[in-house]
């Protein structure tokens, strides 16, 4: 009975694991196979070819889009880590009038659905002439309320003695944050960093709205427009190649830092 139960358990779990892994495997194989093989592809194609990838490279500026995505995501992650730390530090470690009010505003704005600000934010971008520039992809994302709350929580948990000792040594507040406190809250930095990077990397609605010129398009946007816009000429292999290209950087990062990814994402649920 016990053994039977175990077998059933492993069968179910393995079945589920296959359901999650097989589609990715199929996608990679399909992107490497001749167009004619895709419609009957189960495991491996009759021969492996890179022609889908070369077609993709010749049709869209995918290298440029990769650069744009890496650039935008890095800037957004780096700067939002810095700004959110500063705000989080002030909210947890400094006394000033309006502190609780700001905290409550942050909580309130987090409940505000983005659908209400989407159109006006687009209009702001138009009026500032930020459409088709990197500014529209970065400036609105430099502050992240979730990150502020994470940093506030992390700084709160550190002993006051750490800060006092640094003050006696003559450190300013910014030095305290980035040189004294940051080394003590590495898990929070990793979590916020991964979430910010992933959020920025995978964002597609906003780029679709504010970027029309190909040279500024992010990778998910370019791939989306390539697949939807008919330039892939309904060649499945080329479409799938662009999807694999888009997935590869994140999947590779995930394979290396799997635990961090899972922990970071799990913490999105632990807001309160």
């Amino acid at each position: 009975m016990r053994v039977l139960k175990k077998i059933l358990l492993y069968t179910l779990l393995s079945g589920a694991a296959i359901t999650f892994i097989y589609p990715f495997f199929w996608m990679i194989m399909a992107s490497l196979s001749p167009e004619a093989d895709i419609s009957s592809l189960v495991l491996f194609p009759s021969k492996l070819t890179l022609s889908n990838y070369s077609t993709m490279v010749s049709k869209i500026p995918i290298g440029r889009a990769l650069f744009n995505s890496l650039f935008v995501s890095s800037v957004n992650t780096g700067l939002s880590l810095i700004f959110s730390s500063m705000v989080g530090y002030a909210l947890s470690r400094m006394e000033f009038k309006g502190r609780n009010l700001i905290f409550m505003i942050i909580i309130f704005t987090m409940t505000l659905p983005f659908q209400i600000t989407l159109i006006p934010n687009y209009i702001i971008m138009v009026k500032l002439h930020w459409v088709d520039t990197y500014l529209s992809l970065t400036i609105p994302f430099l502050i992240n309320t979730f990150a502020i709350l994470m940093f506030r929580q992390a700084f709160k948990s550190l002993p006051q003695a750490l800060i006092d000792a640094a003050r006696i040594d003559g450190c300013g507040e910014l030095r305290i944050i980035f040189f004294i406190l940051w080394p003590n809250i590495k898990p929070t930095i990793i979590t916020v960093g991964i979430l910010a990077f992933m959020g920025s990397w995978n964002e597609v609605l906003w780029p679709l709205i504010v970027i029309r010129e190909e040279q500024f398009m992010t990778l998910p946007q370019l791939v989306t427009l390539f697949v939807v816009g008919g330039r892939a000429e309904s060649q499945l292999g080329v479409k799938l190649a662009s999807a694999v290209f888009l997935a590869a950087p994140i999947i590779i990062a995930y394979l290396f830092f799997q635990k961090h990814f899972i922990q970071s994402m799990a913490s999105t649920g632990l807001k309160d």
């Binding site: 990715f24 009957s40 995978n202 999807a243 994140i250 995930y254």
Partner: peptide, 28 residues
């Protein structure tokens, strides 16, 4: 198992949609 189940979470919705469009395809 945990890592396998989690894989689609990290990937862009664009990738997942392009992939499933093929899995869902009527003919083949």
């Amino acid at each position: 198992f945990r890592a396998a189940f989690f894989m689609p979470v990290v990937v862009s919705g664009v990738v997942v949609t392009i992939l499933w469009q093929q899995l869902f395809s009527f003919e083949n």
